[in-house]
Amino acid sequence: MQFGQSIQTKLSGLIAAIAVGSLALLPVAAHAKTNEKEPMEVHFSFEGPFGRFDQAELQRGYKVYAEVCSACHSMNLVSYRDLAAPGGPFYDPKHPVAPAQSPYAKAIAEQYKVPDIDPDTGDTIQRTATPADHFKAPFANDAAARAANGGALPPDLSVMARAREGGPAYIYSLLLGYEEPPKGLTVPAGKYYNPYMAGDMGSYWTGAKTQIPEGGFIAMGKQITASRVQFDDKTPSTVENEAHAVATFLAWTADEHQVERKQTGLAVMLYLFVFTLITYLSYRRIWRNVAH
């Protein structure tokens, strides 16, 4: 009996472990039947429970976004003031002010004109942006964006790093992954081949059905090229540095409170661990004389 019970206990423990384990695995299992390449192995400073954003890289990433991506991609959920909020690219811990009062946020916002209504005439006007404004969108609406981009809508980038499997590593890989389409692949007009893009290219492939190439078609051409953006901190403008910086910036815009979250988490876990330990001792003390 004792033996049987301990087997049963171990089994129940195993089941619990499997149940918890499968929790973590399931979303990974949920992949589409597309055969894009796994994102490249690339490391970011914000990985893991102790990871932090590199503020200099966030600033470089903002520059890449502002000078390259923002020509077509909106970022409607992010405001200029966010850039100067704690943890943001232009937060100055030596002179903490309300994000909307930050001279950096003001200086950046003033470079842009945003649409508004003239209160006297009712006309639509372009006024200078303030830190409270959201990032200026490149197009007035989705239809205009499609019309200017051959029918394809450049997706909003606010939460892009959360909206794709692989997150920042995917963005990095996609930006650097453009290559010549394999022979036998018919690339539709206005599209580009990218092995990291999700897609099913079976109907565009004339070769053997067993050798359908990885990846898919993307309406955006290769944008990240060497020296496309000159960094203010003299970081060399290699494609890797540019892609890494903008992937970092997009990871931040998708998860502005990430560092705060992880720091809070460490404190919470530490507290819970101590509390659990004390409660366990209390439990042992209360039950010490009860046979059960």
């Binding site: 929790l23 949920a30 959360r162 909206a163 794709r164 499997e165 979250r261 992880k262 988490g265 919470v268």
Partner: peptide, 15 residues
């Protein structure tokens, strides 16, 4: 707490 603070999107879907 581990899920909330360190893997908050682990049980969600990118889509």
């Amino acid at each position: 707490s581990w899920f909330v603070f360190f893997a908050p999107e682990a049980m969600g879907h990118a889509d």
